[in-house]
Design a protein around this nucleic acid. Structure first.
Lengths: 192, 192
DNA sequence: GCCGGTTCTTGTCCTAGTTCAATGGTCAGG
DNA sequence: CCTGACCATTGAACTAGGACAAGAACCGGC
């Protein structure tokens, strides 16, 4: 149950068995069926979740009802709305399972207790967030400065397993275009 | 020289005078004239810089030569390419002063020494990066899901001092549109 | 094995934003 | 005071991608 997440942590930091035990004790294991909301707009996010199995999407919705997918999270990823989680303020995001999932969650208090009892985890979280940030910087650049075809091809390269797991219109929403247009991009590509 | 940055740090964490001294001792003070590159594509980023005075932009350039501005950094902000800084790998970014600047910089070794000698700073950096990340998430959403007018108005609201300090075509580049089009958006707005 | 729902495709028309080119404004340097 | 850079504006022609509509394909459930 904890092997994967402990391996994950060990990739970032080294910790003693006691610290590892504290970490695991503070995690809650949950099974969640597909199409379940872990968070909806307006709620306060009360978890950071590590995914043992399954696939989850986080997204925003604008006034006109269009969804923009921020992230597809699969095995060995974390999901949360950090802003809402840390400041305990209402979120603007939705977090929804796309498959049946097994997750390990940390509450705000749990995280505080962990960082107090095993400060080295502070580093892990910093490095995690840092990776995320620089990835997102690249994505913003790409969103602004590249063509639809480039975006799609880059997505395939970067996340080769996702297209087999999620519906195509979700990918369109991630890339920032309409489902119809993604379809046209795809036919354009196969014709060549 | 260190008042501002110490106040900045105190907003995130509490630290002892000794820890504060260590922090300040590891910082290097620099004056940099305007239009100077602190980092260019291909170089490895060897600093994290806190801005005491001045204005700096970070940006990417794509194959066709279009610039995309990632950030305008002014007093009381940090600039760096974290990915390049931490993994000591070549950067894709440019970091350029737009005004004469006074900055305080930290080297990778300096940062390591700081975190070793005063681990509470780990928290400060985590919180900084976190804020940045959630801000960037919103911006990505906005870039994809809102109109040019909305983006521009939101920019004015969020960064009211920037337009007085930087040329308009930089703002266009930040918002992800052409200088001509920003001009048109502006006239459209003033006519109403 | 059929049925309702969802998902993907294709075509047509439409719009937000780009590109290019011309004009005038502003300001630093000689 | 003149000049050359750079910058903002405006207009005309163009294009990438969106919205809408209709049909085809693909389920999962009974």
């Amino acid at each position: 149950m904890f092997e994967a997440i402990n391996r994950y942590a060990a990739r970032y930091i080294s910790f003693t068995p006691e610290e590892g035990k504290l970490f695991n004790d503070l995690l809650q294991y949950k099974k969640v069926p597909k199409k379940t909301f872990l968070l909806q707009e307006g709620e306060v996010c009360k978890f950071e979740a590590y995914i043992n199995a399954g696939c989850i999407r986080t997204y925003y919705i604008n006034e006109t009802g269009t969804e923009v997918i921020l992230q597809f999270a699969i095995e060995d990823w974390w999901v949360s709305d950090i802003a809402s989680f840390h400041e305990q303020k209402p979120s603007r995001m939705f977090i929804e399972t796309l498959e049946d999932c097994e997750i390990l969650t940390l509450t705000p208090d749990g995280k505080e207790a962990l960082l107090r009892g095993a400060p080295c985890f502070e580093r892990m979280f910093r490095l995690m967030v840092q990776r995320n940030l620089s990835r997102l910087q690249e994505r913003l650049f790409q969103t602004i400065a590249t063509t639809a075809v480039e975006k799609y091809l880059d997505f395939l390269e970067r996340y080769p397993t996702i297209p087999q797991r999620v519906a195509q219109h979700y990918i369109a929403s991630y890339l920032g275009f309409s489902p119809e247009f993604l379809s046209k991009v795809r036919t354009r590509l196969t014709k060549k």
